[in-house]
Design a protein around this nucleic acid. Sequence first.
RNA 1: GUGGUAAUAGCUCAGUUGGUUAGAGCACUGGUUUGUGGUACCAGGGGUCGCCGGUUCAAGUCCGGUUUACCACCCCA
Length: 450
Amino acid sequence: MLERLPGFRDFYPEDCARRDFIFRVWAEAARAHGFRRYDIPTLEPLELFTEKSGPEIVSQLFNFTDKGGREVALRPELTPSLARMVGARVATLRKPVKWFNIAENFRYEKPQEGRLRSHYQLNCDIFGEPGPAADAELIAVCLACLRGFGAGPEDCALRLSDRTLWTLLLEAMGIEGAGAMEVLGIVDKFERTPREETLKRLRPHFGEACEDFLGQVEALMALREFGEMAAFMRSLAPNADIRKKIETRIGLWRELLDALDAMELSPFVRIDLGIVRGLAYYSGFVFEVFKLAPDGKGYAGRALAGGGRYDHLVGKLGFPETEAVGFGMGDVTMAQFLEEKKKLPPIVDAPDVFIVAAGDAERRAALGLATRLRADGIRTEYALRAPGFGKQFRLAGQSGARLAVVVGGDELAAGNARLKDLASGGEAVVPLATVPAAAREALAEGIGSA
RNA sequence: GUGGUAAUAGCUCAGUUGGUUAGAGCACUGGUUUGUGGUACCAGGGGUCGCCGGUUCAAGUCCGGUUUACCACCCCA
């Protein structure tokens, strides 16, 4: 028995229908917000990814040497390719650039629930706008992608944080550069790490002050109100320079929260500095969307979506410095979420019309009828191997078709076909030539039972 | 990459201290039914019990290995 590669999925028609439903909701939300779709190659030079993430990334990539001796890799993410596309034309692209894509990404990692070696991801990005209006717009499209499924504030929440604020906090405590990145890494894992262990990890950076710092971190993470947060930040400023930066930052927060409130998104948004996000390149507001636990308070499972501002990445990849915000949302966690929250509609995969015909002449007429119905956009089926009438009606019923078109000897002799509403049982006889129009009408309004 | 648990029909699962030809429900196919359907009734197909090896008179059942899946780490999208 030939098996699938580990971490990959087969999509049977019902799986495909579900996947397409998710993609459709995403794409509609993105387009409604003025995002245009782009696409990138599946296979890229290995270097594109090592440049952004360092050589360690190779252990998590599907990479190989192609027949031309090139080192290549299946894309693990879209951002570097996207940065290349935007960077190459940044001078002539009209700003803001708002682009989205839904694409398959690959990572060579140990598969787990919600984390396979291949998954589809929606990515939305905005380039060329430094102000919080872009962050608000991005958060709006992200939440629209969830609201499109009927998910509300009772189902999920967006935890909003700020990398710049963290950097300022660390700066106020005299920690900058590489040390700051390391501390942020520790903070990122704070929720999942025992307090003792966190203290131990902080000690090299703060020495005896690490207990103080941890106290500050805990206080900051517990903040949920804008006013409280602003007051807390102001209380930290050790000098005029940092105080000024903090005031600027607070102003940007106010702008962002106000825009989100005007967009009626406040019920989803929770200030939560506990979100740091592991990736090094985030530079401003960052956020993650989580499924709410049944109690409606805590969070459950993996993030449904995550993103934020990365103003320096495009520049770092060797292209002109370009402001950017973006987020990603995966199909695996999304499908799981929708399943749990009962937001997936029943899959309708039935034809509109099933043609019932017996006998050679009737069958020829049925094939012609099928062609005309199909040309009219009516999903039409018939039995490829025609059994008796009873059996064909059974097939019609099983197919889920709403309408049967009966082409029997009697009808054909009179130049007619019989339409039967399979739900009500009502029937109508119409001339063969008018079947597509009559079928369309019957599909819309049904045929009453006599 | 490191640990833990599991693997029996397309799906969900049963299978006693090791003991005849491995079962059920759902699904699928055919029939009852050559002019009226999804129900019903009858019948049928489908399994190297994940794979390899070992113990035994005898292995789905016990032992070792391996693969895969799931769970927890590591890491991350």
